[in-house]
Amino acid sequence: MSVLGSGIFKGMAVTLKNFVGSYFDKERLTTNEYAWQANDKLPERAGDYPKEEAEQLSDTTTVTQYSRNFPMLLHDAGEPMDTVRCVACQICERECPPQCIYIEKSTEKKERSGNKAQFYPATFDIDVSVCMSCQICVEVCPFDAIVMNSQFELSTPSRFGELLLRRDDLLKSNDYYYKIHPEEASARDKRIADEKAAKEAKKKAAEAAKKKAAEAKSKSEAEAKAKEEAEAASKPTEPSDTPPAESTATPSTEPPATPTTEPEKEGSAE
């Protein structure tokens, strides 16, 4: 049988322990004050905040790899704009609930290293004062081009200008991604590789099927021709044999291209 009101005092003892302990026990007070700044020096101007990737790393690695706040654009190794993954498809712009993304598509296509020529984002702005960190853009991106950054040191002295992140601010290398979110990055790359392999395999299969179909088609066409020629002598009015041959050939080539990328992505992105 407990004394009346003892629960309150028990709770108060716990909080008192925490209160006093936070002054003496380093284990309790885990706050890491500005690890990237020397000697407790506070950033005072916009220029004091790290803009470069290397500097940001020291900032972003003070938080866990599960921390996410605002989106960034990924590019593979090399010159950022040569290897940027984004093709300016504008899906993220359309899906963004607070509509904080603004994209302008380039006028002409551009060769990417290792890939075929694609459009690229001439402008890619994210207003982080509007962004609500919902990650929907990450979910919908079919090219794995947009992922979440964990850089939190974003405060600026001006209200509008510097919170609008431009394309060049957003572009981050895949190596950086590996450093801040190692688990997620390797999972994503593995998935991309798997998909690519699967695609290739399917492509091969499709090609084989196509070849087969083409052979079959040519065969049937030849047969049909022979038949036609044979029939032409007797009945020259109805040339209706070609459509069925076409419809049997097309399904084998086209369907694999569409469903592979979309539904698998959602699950494996987590």
Binding site: T15, N18, F19, G21, S22, Y23, R28, L29, T30, T31, E33, L42
Partner: peptide, 14 residues
């Protein structure tokens, strides 16, 4: 400050 310390935070210190 006190609430922060109770929750093992630092509180306003800048």
């Amino acid at each position: 400050k006190a609430l922060a310390r109770i929750q093992n935070r630092i509180g306003p210190n800048k």
